[in-house]
Simulated scan of single mutants.
Amino acid sequence: MSDAELLAVRDAGTPDIEGRSKRIWLLSGGLCVVEMIPSLRSFTYSRDELVEETGPLRLEFYDRAAARLAKGGVRTGFVRRLAPTVYLSEFHEAPPFEVVVKNRAVGSTLVKYPGLFPANSELPKPVVKFDYRIDPEDQPIGEDYLRALDLPVEEFRRIALAVNDTLISWLAPLEVWDFCIILGLDPQGEPVLISEVSPDCMRLRHPDGSSLDKDLFRHGASSEELVTAWQRLLDEIG
């Protein structure tokens, strides 16, 4: 189907799936049309807003990231961009958990395990953890629960670390502090990175110490300040 035909699917009816950040229209052949919802949410800081300008910035970053990840041997569901906030993707069922990689002691590491590491300190090696996705706040889940569901935990871990290596190499000298991804399984049982990769789901720091991610929103920055920082991020990575 042409881009115009795919966008017509989006315009013709209600989405088959709608969450906090995306609307999805299912297609034949294991594909789907995805529209980003420009939502920003922080449970910890009780903040929930729509910022229209963030949608195109997220998708622009994801478009570039998907190309880099493909070169690094990581399979993503991303196919191509159709409009500023709309893209074509493979469709695979999303599991009720996400995979988190942490290079520094930030966020949930400090909240869940106070005193274990100094705040913002670099971890001796990247930490991979799994969080059960549930409202109002995701919760850590033991890996054996995932193994009990016959999920390829070690392969998920390998892919998460490969994503980490690719992002660190691509984004340097910006620092990747942490990120979260969602891995689905194709009909053959092979893992596919099905979530977006963008400043909405990671922590990035400029060499000057400034934040280039959703931490700005978490800590009270205005919509204008957030959009300016995310545009700066895209300008920095070229």
Rank of each mutant, 00 (worst) to 15 (best):
residue 2 S to Y: 11
residue 2 S to Q: 13
residue 5 E to S: 15
residue 6 L to V: 10
residue 7 L to Y: 11
residue 9 V to R: 14
residue 12 A to M: 07
residue 13 G to Y: 11
residue 14 T to H: 12
residue 17 I to N: 09
residue 18 E to M: 09
residue 18 E to S: 14
residue 21 S to N: 12
residue 21 S to Y: 10
residue 22 K to L: 03
residue 23 R to I: 09
residue 23 R to N: 12
residue 26 L to Y: 07
residue 29 G to L: 08
residue 31 L to E: 14
residue 32 C to V: 04
residue 35 E to W: 11
residue 35 E to L: 12
residue 36 M to F: 15
residue 36 M to C: 13
residue 38 P to K: 08
residue 38 P to D: 07
residue 39 S to C: 13
residue 42 S to A: 01
residue 42 S to Q: 03
residue 42 S to Y: 03
residue 43 F to G: 10
residue 51 V to P: 05
residue 55 G to K: 09
residue 56 P to H: 10
residue 57 L to E: 01
residue 57 L to N: 00
residue 59 L to A: 07
residue 62 Y to H: 15
residue 63 D to G: 08
residue 64 R to K: 15
residue 64 R to Y: 13
residue 66 A to H: 02
residue 67 A to R: 14
residue 72 G to S: 11
residue 77 G to F: 08
residue 77 G to Q: 08
residue 78 F to D: 08
residue 79 V to Q: 14
residue 81 R to K: 15
residue 85 T to M: 14
residue 86 V to E: 07
residue 88 L to P: 03
residue 90 E to C: 09
residue 91 F to L: 08
residue 91 F to R: 11
residue 93 E to V: 14
residue 94 A to S: 15
residue 96 P to K: 00
residue 98 E to P: 01
residue 103 N to W: 05
residue 106 V to F: 02
residue 107 G to D: 00
residue 108 S to Y: 00
residue 113 Y to M: 06
residue 114 P to C: 02
residue 115 G to A: 01
residue 116 L to Q: 03
residue 116 L to S: 04
residue 117 F to A: 04
residue 121 S to I: 03
residue 121 S to W: 04
residue 126 P to F: 01
residue 128 V to L: 04
residue 129 K to H: 13
residue 130 F to D: 05
residue 131 D to M: 15
residue 131 D to V: 09
residue 131 D to P: 00
residue 134 I to H: 10
residue 138 D to L: 02
residue 139 Q to P: 00
residue 140 P to E: 00
residue 141 I to T: 05
residue 149 L to K: 03
residue 150 D to F: 11
residue 152 P to T: 01
residue 153 V to L: 02
residue 160 A to S: 07
residue 160 A to G: 06
residue 166 T to G: 07
residue 167 L to A: 08
residue 172 A to N: 10
residue 176 V to N: 04
residue 178 D to C: 01
residue 182 I to H: 11
residue 182 I to Q: 14
residue 182 I to K: 13
residue 185 L to A: 06
residue 186 D to P: 00
residue 187 P to S: 08
residue 188 Q to P: 04
residue 190 E to N: 15
residue 193 L to W: 01
residue 194 I to C: 07
residue 199 P to V: 05
residue 201 C to K: 12
residue 204 L to K: 02
residue 208 D to A: 09
residue 208 D to C: 05
residue 213 D to A: 02
residue 216 L to Y: 07
residue 217 F to D: 01
residue 217 F to V: 01
residue 218 R to Q: 02
residue 221 A to N: 05
residue 222 S to A: 08
residue 222 S to W: 00
residue 224 E to S: 15
residue 229 A to S: 15
residue 232 R to Y: 12
residue 232 R to C: 11
residue 233 L to N: 10
residue 235 D to R: 14
